[in-house]
Design a protein around this nucleic acid. Sequence first.
DNA 1: TGATGAGATGACAACGTTGTCGTCTTATTG
DNA 2: CAATAAGACGACAACGTTGTCATCTCATCA
Lengths: 333, 333
Amino acid sequence: MRPTMRDVARRAGVSLKTVSRVVNGEVGVRPDTAEKVNDAIAALGFRRNDIARALRGGKRTRSLGLVIKDVANPFYSQIARGVEEVARAHDLFVISGCSDEDPARERHLIRSLCERRVDGLLVVPSAADHRYLIPELKMGTAAVFMDRPPEEAIQADVVLIDNVGGARAGVEHLIAHGHRRIACLADLPGIFTARERRRGYDEALLAHGIAVDESLVRLGPHDVAGAEAATAELLALGDPPTAVFTGNNRLTIGALRAIQAAGSRTALVGFDDFELADMLATPVTVVAHYPAEMGRRAAELLCRRMDGEDLPPQRVLLPTRLIVRGSGESPPL
Amino acid sequence: MRPTMRDVARRAGVSLKTVSRVVNGEVGVRPDTAEKVNDAIAALGFRRNDIARALRGGKRTRSLGLVIKDVANPFYSQIARGVEEVARAHDLFVISGCSDEDPARERHLIRSLCERRVDGLLVVPSAADHRYLIPELKMGTAAVFMDRPPEEAIQADVVLIDNVGGARAGVEHLIAHGHRRIACLADLPGIFTARERRRGYDEALLAHGIAVDESLVRLGPHDVAGAEAATAELLALGDPPTAVFTGNNRLTIGALRAIQAAGSRTALVGFDDFELADMLATPVTVVAHYPAEMGRRAAELLCRRMDGEDLPPQRVLLPTRLIVRGSGESPPL
DNA sequence: TGATGAGATGACAACGTTGTCGTCTTATTG
DNA sequence: CAATAAGACGACAACGTTGTCATCTCATCA
């Protein structure tokens, strides 16, 4: 169905190789010959077959694999956007897949991407164990991790947010506004960022001589509904917290719902910025970071690896920024 | 570097073809032979090369191309998610690119995707002219358009939102609440959905015997800031509108900002739902639709085409749903 | 015991392209 | 005018896989 170079060659009355030369803009073809070839290409609607090209070349498929949890989640879609920008600049395509936080699916995705011979891998890891990647890395597939590091055994670049520092800054902001009873909503403790942000929360309290009250810490809420329930529970305590620190935007929104529903004036600082945070009934003070930047930095690192640069594994920490909007500045009752 | 089947064969002491058989789970290999082969595969870290496989097979690359405006935009990332779900179910990979609404880039993307021999294309078109696609379609690359139709000349499936009906329902909702002076913010008239929604607005007014007052219609605001300015202007009129209908979520947010800033009680209904619409100071009544569903439907259609089904070009219209939240129900002053 | 056939395995070509090298044409130079 | 070189072009192999067909080994049976 699709014409090949051979078909073009036949039609133009030249050899296969000459067509190849014209298609690739190589020198050493007389203008009139090139014209004949181009006419044939246009007439037949020929498109060079990049599959064959990649096979013959043996080296580059000019593609990179991106494994994230879920494109529909703005955090990941912004990462994807950052990756796409860099890929575009390097004339690469992005082949992406959603792991949905399922280690088996992540593994399957990565394996399939390797089978497709992507030139590099960008992964937001879900699985705990990435040793299965070691052979792939050895075989020369470059890989860069984002948002969460792989375990020690893996020698690869990582681009992370400064989770500890950001969380600490957020909680210290609440402390600076007079809060002492500060609750913490963290995601499942199996998640790296949840642990790190929890650590920042602890550090902030400790640094200001406040003992961590485990009854104010909720590890586990994983979605808006869970966070809403957990917050409602906290607000219903005999001695409720005067402020809440939430470990990600889902949790922030859940907490917000509960606080709003309870008609409470509990202060709130959340990790992750989100659209409309400034438009809410109480604009939300957040620890912001820049997922697109994470995607860009990771993709850039990956491209350097793909170009054969041989640095020791990098660990990039991206800064956060506290955005003060109102919810984090109300004093304790 | 990467071992091939030949390497595996050598190590296992069998022929190339036998390795192929084992790798593909074909019958007719003695268990002990298969074991030798599997041992060699494990020892060498062999991964089947899908590039070579696709070339040899000649037919399927098991991939589909997705061209959207911008993954970072939730509308498109939800489409991408829907596509991904279907792709996953069919064991396909999604290769995506962002056109950023640039026709030249869209064309380049589609061309490159065809060169990569994707099995099918899913496109949210930016360009006005897609005739360049005709040869590709003829060559057997299936294509399905989303959100906006291609021009007449292109024979391809389209999955659209019921823009006219949705807009009409939204405006009629305002009319039902007593409004007569209803402003309309529509995006650039070059955009299909903007035109269609504008048409729904006109139809609603006409159906209720209200003449369209062009001074209340603003075509052109394309982002939050533009919508905010346009709305401020409308509110400053001597005889301002009592309600505003906005053609997409960016415009809704801009209008909301202006209304909030002016301390006005102007009613508002917007096209597109958005996260937190229910959490704002005034929860926003919207005409909701389901981008992920659009992605799914389009991908399903595409898969049917790819499987060789030969229907006439389909035109799927997805329904909208009016979600009443408060901003659309305040009466005229 | 030799014919028969089923099952296991291998040799080879082909997918569409590009790198290497050889051949042929034409212009240049002594 | 013959020698030479540069330029244009083509023949062929190879990339790693799979489909086709041939071959080989046994167990079975008349």
